[in-house]
Simulated scan of single mutants.
Amino acid sequence: MKIAILVEGATEMAFKTKLHDFLKSRLEPPMPKLKFIPQEGRIPKEDKLRRVVENLLEKDGYDAVIAITDVYTGTNDFVDAQDAKEKMRSWVGNNPRFYPHAAQYDFEAWLLPFWSTIQQISGGNKSAPSGSPERVNHDNPPSYRIKEIFEQGQKQGKCRSYSKTRDAVSILRRNDLMNAVNVCPELKAFLNTILSLCEADQIP
């Protein structure tokens, strides 16, 4: 199984190792070949997305293409994760090998369940955002919340600003991904798509 995963950029790339370890614990060999393909800041729109997907499937020989977009893109393109998925599917057309997914409101929502680790790394002591991680909204999305606690840590003498690549990897490495899966339905849906493509048991 050869799967292309279109991602926006640095933070999602940091997820690659954790995803591989998670799948390794649930899949029998051989493991699927996962290719993370960053899209320079955001997933393409409309005809450009369709062309990217078709080229990966028809020219590059991938069995499936998954796209993960943030709902929060700095624009008003998407209302929520469901709207983002529906729009991506409409842009690509009726292609059964394309699987759209969305992080609501951005990828860092999937890091919020590990807030105690974020506090340790940042040196800040801000309280975790209340409610479901995937409901932290457009006005102050998850990535901003994490940036804020790192800035607080700097003021308290810890000279370290938030780095999407370095710190996302560190946060994920120290934690069990299932703790995020259990409170992040969109993350669970993304993982279940891969498990389904590999004909493995899905996460209930």
Rank of each mutant, 00 (worst) to 15 (best):
V136K: 02
Q156H: 14
N125M: 13
P142V: 10
V169R: 10
A128D: 00
I118N: 08
S143P: 04
N137E: 14
P129R: 10
E134C: 09
G124I: 05
H138T: 12
V136Q: 02
I121D: 02
P129W: 10
N137W: 07
S143V: 05
G123D: 09
A128S: 11
S130N: 10
G153T: 04
E148F: 01
P133R: 12
I146S: 03
V136S: 07
E151R: 08
K155R: 11
F150A: 03
G124R: 06
Q119H: 01
T165M: 06
D139Y: 11
G153F: 06
S122A: 15
S122N: 13
P142S: 13
S170D: 14
S143R: 08
P141I: 06
I118G: 09
K147C: 02
R145E: 01
Q156G: 04
A168I: 03
K155S: 13
V136Y: 08
E148H: 08
K158C: 05
G131C: 09
G131V: 08
Q119P: 00
Q120P: 00
K158T: 14
R135T: 15
K155Q: 13
G123P: 11
R145V: 05
A128R: 10
G153N: 06
D139A: 04
T165P: 05
R166V: 15
S161N: 13
V169N: 00
I146N: 01
N140S: 12
D139S: 09
K147T: 13
K147D: 11
S132T: 12
Q154D: 02
P129G: 05
N140K: 10
K164V: 01
N125D: 14
K147L: 03
G131T: 07
Q154N: 10
S122P: 14
Y162E: 02
I146D: 03
S170P: 00
S127T: 08
I149Y: 08
R145F: 04
G123C: 12
S161R: 14
G123M: 10
P133Y: 13
K147W: 03
A168S: 12
Q156R: 14
K164D: 02
I118D: 11
P133E: 12
S132V: 12
S170H: 11
S127G: 08
F150Y: 13
